[in-house]
Simulated assay, not measured.
Amino acid sequence: MAEDLRTAAAGQAKRLKCSSSNQEAEKKEENGHQAKRFKGDQEDGEDQNKKLQKRKIVLLMAYSGKGYYGMQRNMGSSQFKTIEDDLVSALIRSGCIPENHGEDMKKMSFQRCARTDKGVSAAGQIVSLKVWLINNILQKINDCLPAHIRILGLKRVTGGFNSKNKCDARTYSYMLPTFAFAHKDTDPQDETYRLNKETLEKVNQLLACYKGTRNFHNFTSQKGPKDPSAKRYIMEMSCEEPFVREGIEFAVIKVKGQSFMMHQIRKMIGLVIAIVKGYASESVMERSWGEEKVDVPRAPGLGLVLERVHFEKYNRRFGNDGLHEPLEWLDEEEKIAVFKEQHIYPTIINTEKEEKSMLSWLDTLPIHDFNSTVSKLQVSDGNAKNSDLEASDGCDDDSD
């Protein structure tokens, strides 16, 4: 009997102690001490994810680059916001990667296929990385991203895949108002200009001259004529039929190449514009591939878009191995087209109308001296580049 009383008393004391502890915990929560429980919930979620194995994937990205200092993240330079800043934040918040991976992106084996410069957009950027393959992963990532950055597709890849090194070629487009091709002496230099058939043929004749392997040391910076890396292979380059938007006629130039250097595409287009407008002779193009230093103008960054990247060799080896899909995005083509119509084209058109970047740049062409090796503009342009912290161009995918 005495033993039963002692057991009952001990049980009652235990219940009172638990009740007191619960009341104390509730009181702490009322006083704002909820962080400890929340942290525990976070750790539980992360522990649950850790049970999943990290997998190497690629993400198909589209973004409007206006307001960003390019694609590549600049650790320690938070004032210069990049596309990757928003992407990494979304990956962490959606639960795809642990928080410490955001501080050191090597931990998730992160690699972008091509860097894009300040203000440059992309419709088919590819990044490779290791993530936890959580449920509804694309939706959860996109829920944490602004509307002008979207993840449009995801595919599993081999463990050693690197989106930059495995890329065979890149295709860029450059959308510009056609008055850029208006001859300086005979055509109207404003939005009333319309591109005729003869001028379009001339443009395409000049663009076709770039095809093949050329020495493009005059189309970038800090590379000499003897530098082997200045030689680049261009597969295709042409200007499509013009179209009218918001009262302005535009045209799109497409270029596909194995790889591109800093400023290369914008300078390739800039030189063609200078020739068609009558500021430079066609012989300047031939001279630019030689050892002589030639002053090549650089077209504005607005209008440059990374359209797609190509993985032909990878697809041939792994695309039909039964474990991996080919890195092609036919099912995502409609989503890509919709994104361009909603976010990329309107940004290019509206910015051109408001800021008149092409008109302003065209006014600088007379300053260039295409017959000499150095011009006043190159000096001022270099100073502007340093002050603007342009570390990479819209098509700089191999200057790491």
Rank of each mutant, 00 (worst) to 15 (best):
F110D: 12
Q111E: 13
Q111A: 04
Q111G: 04
R112C: 07
R112N: 08
C113N: 10
C113W: 09
C113G: 08
C113R: 10
C113Y: 07
A114I: 11
A114L: 08
R115A: 09
R115N: 10
T116Y: 02
D117I: 12
D117Q: 08
K118W: 03
K118L: 12
V120E: 06
S121L: 05
S121C: 08
A122D: 07
A122K: 06
A123Q: 09
A123H: 09
Q125V: 14
Q125G: 09
Q125P: 03
Q125H: 09
I126C: 04
I126P: 06
V127W: 05
V127E: 11
V127D: 08
V127G: 06
S128M: 04
K130I: 13
V131C: 08
W132A: 15
W132H: 08
L133P: 00
L133D: 03
I134V: 08
I134P: 01
N135R: 07
I137V: 15
I137Y: 12
I137R: 12
I137M: 14
I137G: 15
L138W: 13
Q139L: 11
Q139F: 15
Q139P: 12
K140T: 07
K140E: 15
K140F: 03
K140C: 14
K140Y: 06
I141D: 06
I141G: 11
N142C: 07
N142K: 02
N142E: 05
D143H: 02
D143S: 12
D143W: 01
C144G: 14
L145A: 10
P146T: 06
P146D: 13
A147S: 14
A147M: 13
R150C: 02
R150G: 02
I151L: 11
I151F: 11
L152E: 10
G153R: 07
L154H: 05
K155R: 15
V157Y: 03
V157R: 09
T158R: 11
G159W: 10
G159V: 11
G160W: 09
F161V: 07
S163H: 04
S163A: 03
K164G: 02
N165T: 05
N165I: 06
K166C: 04
K166A: 09
K166V: 02
C167P: 01
C167R: 13
D168V: 05
A169P: 00
R170K: 15
R170D: 09
T171S: 12
Y172V: 12
Y172R: 08
S173E: 06
S173L: 10
S173K: 03
M175Y: 07
M175K: 02
L176M: 02
T178M: 06
F179V: 03
A180Q: 04
F181P: 02
F181E: 05
A182I: 04
A182N: 08
D185H: 09
D187R: 04
P188H: 00
Q189I: 00
Q189K: 02
